[in-house]
């Protein structure tokens, strides 16, 4: 970098701050989205199992597999680095 050391230090710090803010904002959005999706998933499964009389273990298996699949699929989308 050609900038004088003091300038570089200043700019680095402000970049860190905005990165930090963006990361917090991203985490917040992701959390809200996660909760919404998982809530819908639980509701959907509950309604589905209500009308099918499938066993209890299948409910929890589907519940957790669904969540794991959701996280696996969406993980690359939020990786910005």
């Amino acid at each position: 970098m050609s900038n004088p050391p003091s300038d570089a230090a200043t700019r680095d710090r402000s970049d860190d701050e905005s990165d930090g803010r963006r990361s917090i904002a991203n985490t917040g959005v992701r959390l809200v989205l996660d909760l919404a999706v998982v809530t819908l998933w639980v509701l959907f499964l509950a309604l589905l199992f209500l009308q099918t009389a499938w066993p209890r273990w299948a409910f929890y298996a589907a519940l957790l597999l669904g969540v794991a699949a959701y996280v696996t699929v969406t993980a690359p989308w939020t990786d910005e680095r």
Binding site: D34, L35, V42, Y60, L64, A68
Partner: peptide, 10 residues
């Protein structure tokens, strides 16, 4: 975290 939330919600 999401799984725990899901089970709690259920």
């Amino acid at each position: 975290a999401a799984g725990g939330y899901a089970v709690g919600m259920a």
